[in-house]
């Protein structure tokens, strides 16, 4: 496989267990943008501890799908239940889900007017109501984890793209989420920075975090994911465990997509 970011390290799988508790349950979910049918009859169950990679051509609705999970986008029919809370227009439920679900964006979306440390403590202080000192300790803990504690007092503009994305991951982790969503976290990065972000994500997976990643990093998918979901035209076309998915794709659309992305 000619993947430039093939994962060459040993993965520690001791904590990567899929439990039989349901984390996210999506049933018959549909979404329209005006008259355009973006998501069609999505059914999906995510267990705690699962690491799912969602891939598909651009415009296939994969970003929209995970943005529905923390209600950045509203769905029009069907049901999304996150950790036992159903997403409706009830603000309390939305708040609850959002504080349980962390999200990492393609363009990092760090707050440029706040220092790295302040970026990480903002939500814990104002949403979780944690004392400032405690929040800062947590923040430093996670910044050490993503290996940039020394940048804590700088501003986002002074960091490289890879560093910014790692800060964004740390910022989400500071809320102690049970589920992490990744929306193409590496596609705005220069090639040499992709690896550092993927390494951080792998470490997260090794700790047993439930993860949904929209990404085209197939090396990451093979090394870490326990399931790969392929989407096209707003629907789930194929899903399988990684080895089967890459070596023995069933649908013609999947085959076409894989041949394009892997450059065969």
């Amino acid at each position: 496989m000619s993947d430039p970011h093939a994962i060459d390290r040993e993965i520690d799988r001791s904590h990567m267990q899929v439990s039989d508790e349901v984390a996210i349950q999506i049933t018959r979910m549909n979404k329209w943008y005006g008259a355009f049918h973006v998501l069609r009859d999505i059914n999906m169950t995510v267990m705690k501890g699962e690491r799912i990679v969602i891939c598909g051509p651009s415009g296939s609705g994969k970003s929209t799908l995970i943005r529905c999970i923390n209600r950045l986008e509203e769905h029009q029919s069907g049901q999304i239940v996150v950790d036992g809370t159903e997403l409706t227009s009830d603000l309390k439920n939305i708040d609850k889900v959002r504080s349980e679900v962390g999200m990492v964006f393609q363009h990092f979306n760090l707050f440029p007017h706040l220092s790295i440390l302040e970026n990480c403590t903002l939500a814990p202080i104002w949403v979780r109501k944690i004392p400032k000192r405690e929040a800062e300790e947590t923040a430093m803990h996670f910044l050490e984890k993503v290996k940039i504690p020394e940048q804590a007092h700088k501003y986002p503009g002074q960091l490289s793209g890879g560093q910014q994305q790692r800060v964004a991951i740390a910022r989400s982790l500071c809320m102690k989420p049970r589920i992490m969503l990744f929306d193409e976290p590496t596609s705005a990065l220069d090639p040499e920075m992709i690896k550092e972000v993927l390494d951080t994500m792998i470490e997260l997976a090794e700790e047993g975090m439930t993860m949904l990643c929209v990404t085209h990093e197939m090396g990451f998918a093979q090394a870490v994911a326990n399931r790969v979901v392929f989407m096209d035209q707003g629907q789930i076309v194929e899903q399988n465990e990684p080895r089967e998915f890459f070596n023995n794709p069933q649908s013609d659309r999947t085959k076409l997509f894989l041949s394009q992305i892997l450059g065969h």
Binding site: N70, R98, F105, L110, W126, M175
Partner: peptide
């Protein structure tokens, strides 16, 4: 102030009022 800022704040669980005061207005 880009839309991503509002989204990031929402994703962290900040309510619209707080988002305005803590994230959008200062920028």
């Amino acid at each position: 102030v880009s839309k991503g800022q509002t989204e990031a704040a929402s994703a962290l669980g900040l309510r619209p009022g707080r988002t305005m005061r803590l994230v959008i207005l200062p920028q």
